[in-house]
């Protein structure tokens, strides 16, 4: 346990200082010692969780959250094929930015979700409600992650929920982005199933939603 705590601390320092090489070295040491990707995954998850929590309380910046996600995405992309790691029974996850053209939040969440071995389809940004619903249907998405930057875009999520209900679509809806950070009850107002406060929270929600009846 103590060794893992030290590895998490070393990985945290590497990510916060945007040291790609040093960060990868830590994870490769973890993998070499334990011969398992699940231990690597645990170090990643716990470290990104610490960074996400640190952002919530003002200790770390959004840019550090973002760069940490990107670095993890890169490292995992290199290491996964070596371990042939694929999550069994992964739900089909879709992600997109509704209306807005700022995709930072989407990139962070996508990186972390991929780092956890989930299958995720990126629908892009600047999407209309209709486009979001059509892609959800076309890809038979189980969990749709919708990111927004502006308040009017966040309020439009209500229309996605309405279309889901009208068409009998049972896809679970997780929302995120600035408007939801400023108003803790907004996700309920727009008819979402959950509020993805940060990327690691999204992982927990996905696992909870897909196992819920």
């Amino acid at each position: 346990m103590e060794q893992q705590a030290q590895q998490i601390q070393a990985f945290l320092v590497g990510l916060l200082s945007m040291d790609r090489i040093g960060s990868e070295q830590v994870l490769r040491e973890v993998a070499a010692q334990r011969q398992s990707f699940s231990d690597v995954e645990q170090v990643i998850t716990e470290t990104l969780g610490l960074i996400g929590e640190g952002w919530e309380v003002g200790d770390y910046s959004l840019s550090q959250v973002y760069m940490s996600g990107v670095i993890c995405e890169e490292i995992v992309g290199r290491m996964l094929p070596e371990f042939r790691m694929v999550r069994k029974n992964s739900p089909k996850i879709g992600i997109g930015v509704l209306i807005d053209h700022h995709a930072l939040g989407k990139r962070i969440v996508k990186a972390v979700v991929q780092a956890e071995g989930f299958e995720i389809f990126d629908f892009g940004y600047g999407l209309s409600v209709d486009e979001m619903v059509e892609k959800t249907m076309a890809y038979r998405i189980d969990v749709l992650l919708v990111s927004t930057l502006m308040l009017p875009s966040a309020l439009k999520i209500k229309e996605i929920r309405q279309q889901f209900e009208a068409r009998g679509i049972t896809t679970r809806l997780i929302v995120g982005g600035a408007p939801f950070r400023f108003d803790n009850s907004l996700w309920q107002q727009v008819g979402a199933d959950a509020d993805g406060k940060n990327a690691t929270a999204v992982i927990e929600i996905i696992e909870r939603l897909v196992t819920a009846p």
């Binding site: 209306i99 807005d100 053209h101 700022h102 600047g126 930057l149 502006m150 308040l151 009017p152 875009s153």
Partner: peptide
């Protein structure tokens, strides 16, 4: 990019 009920956004 203009929207009906919010601030115009950068495209």
């Amino acid at each position: 990019v203009f929207v009906d009920d919010g601030p115009p956004n950068s495209g």
